[in-house]
Design a protein around this nucleic acid. Structure first.
Lengths: 192, 192
DNA sequence: CAGACCATGTAAAACGTTACATGATTCG
DNA sequence: CGAATCATGTAACGTTTTACATGGTCTG
């Protein structure tokens, strides 16, 4: 039951509607706790009915009305309790890794293609992270921001995300190149 | 529906029972697709009834009988099909990241403690990965193994796991140190 | 003899994903 | 005028997690 906490954490930045949150959670950059819009709408109204967030309907004329939420005192207390609980083991689920694991028994071509795509996505994500990091620290340099900035939490998780994608990028390229080499070798020596 | 593929991939290494697979999936090193024993028992009998794996009951006298499974031709074909499908976006779900994200609004102490624990776990996992990597490449050096070894899939995913944990370790230490510093600063200057 | 390990499962609850539904406005 | 964006939801389905159940052997 931690989507609720991810939502509460996201709402610390300001007042958001389900739709807006969905976009944040979708950039893929909404790190470490993916969620689709339907989950967010459901979770927000649940949090509202439980009194952890406060909803407010914003009437708009040029587009549909929306309901925006903020974390209230109850919600903050819940987050504090959550922060103190034991951290569960994280879970990564990645199709591509399963494919690579089995690659000795399948065609290399498709897997190489997937690795290349993943590398391209990683590059885009790194660029996105960099934009966000720049935005977060404003006109301060990183060192100063980390010492004195007032919202280091998002900065730290963003840094982690960036490093993860950097790692991912390098590994995907390495793995793709290796498989290409081995495929070429196989073609050269038709033994086996 | 990719647990089935993770199971098929794991069975490429040999003949395993649900119990043995559970241990493999549990070492935390069974990368990129966590699963608890109950899932594996269920998945194995499903795969068996669908004809993707072949089960065989091993009678034991000193301990309970067990049912071991191997991937058959059908299973291999399924894996090949799977390898060709588009790789879905991977999902990471990590409690700790949510805690760090919200850290500006909560007590630092608990989060620092969790980061320290996570760092310790990462160190253990790195050591475990190193043992597995050494085991996989046998008496070959890494370069030779990657060129000519006959099971590079597991080696590559293991390398990725190792790098991930290395990254994790460094980031956890960095984040913990930073939060400690900021806590000390807060104590020094009680302004705010 | 208590606790750990071997070995496998059922059942219910929680959580996540996909499909479907609706309806107005703006942009090309 | 078709597609995209804004905005929110219900319902069905699939997957994961947790709890419960059983019973033998081996170790301290």
């Amino acid at each position: 039951m931690a989507l609720r906490h991810a939502v509460l954490a996201a709402l610390l930045d300001g007042e958001y509607s389900g739709y807006q949150l969905a976009k944040i959670f979708d950039t893929g950059v909404a790190n470490f706790w993916p969620a689709v819009p339907q989950q967010l709408y459901a979770e927000l109204s649940k949090l509202d009915s439980e009194g952890l967030v406060t909803g407010r309907t914003v009437v708009q004329h040029d587009r549909p009305n929306k309901r925006v939420y903020t974390v209230n005192a109850e919600g903050l207390a819940e987050l504090a309790r959550f922060a103190a609980t034991e951290a569960k083991q994280f879970a990564i689920r990645d199709d591509l890794m399963v494919k690579v694991y089995a690659v000795d028994h399948t065609e290399h071509a498709a897997v190489i293609e997937h690795l290349t795509q993943r590398a391209a996505m990683a590059e885009e994500k790194i660029a996105a992270y960099d934009r966000i990091l720049t935005g977060l620290r404003g006109d301060l340099d990183e060192k100063t921001f980390l010492r004195k900035g007032n919202r280091v939490g998002p900065y730290l998780t963003c840094l982690r995300g960036r490093r993860f994608e950097q790692e991912n990028l390098e590994w995907c390229r390495f793995a793709a190149a290796l498989l290409r080499d081995r495929t070429a070798d196989d073609a050269g020596s038709p033994t086996t």
